[in-house]
Amino acid sequence: MKLFHESEGITRRQFFKGAGMLTVAAVISGVFAKFGFDVFAASDDYIAKRVAGLYTLDESMAIRKSHENPEIIQIYKDFLSPGKVECVSPKAHHLLHTKYGNDIPGFIAELKNPHLVHEAEPAANEETSTEEPAA
């Protein structure tokens, strides 16, 4: 029985086609990598733009310091520390300050029953907050 087969070796044209395909594959990989890199570089740009937006807005404001805010001065004088601007006044402390972690149950008890002595009462209530860590 006769057996047929292809001739071994390659012609110049075949070589260039084979090498050309490998080159094309490499180029496509490179283009894809470049695309990925560009996306990587640009994907966070919005953060800087939003930050810049806030700084630009700051520059356009007539008042740029917290203690010069007339409504801040008013809330201290009318409400938090009547007649003057006194930070961390008793009322400000009650409304504007908090406690963290294991101090919270006692703090809640204090808020619910203002007659309790400061921090003297351990947490003997049902409001134990669920988010509290096991310290």
């Binding site: 292809e6 071994e8 390659i10 075949q14 086609k17 090498a19 395909m21």
Partner: peptide, 17 residues
């Protein structure tokens, strides 16, 4: 396959192109 049989691969590429 491509690296070890570059001739076969080249003939294949030549044929299909």
């Amino acid at each position: 396959y491509v690296l070890l049989n570059f001739d076969r691969f080249s003939r294949f590429m030549d044929s299909i192109s």
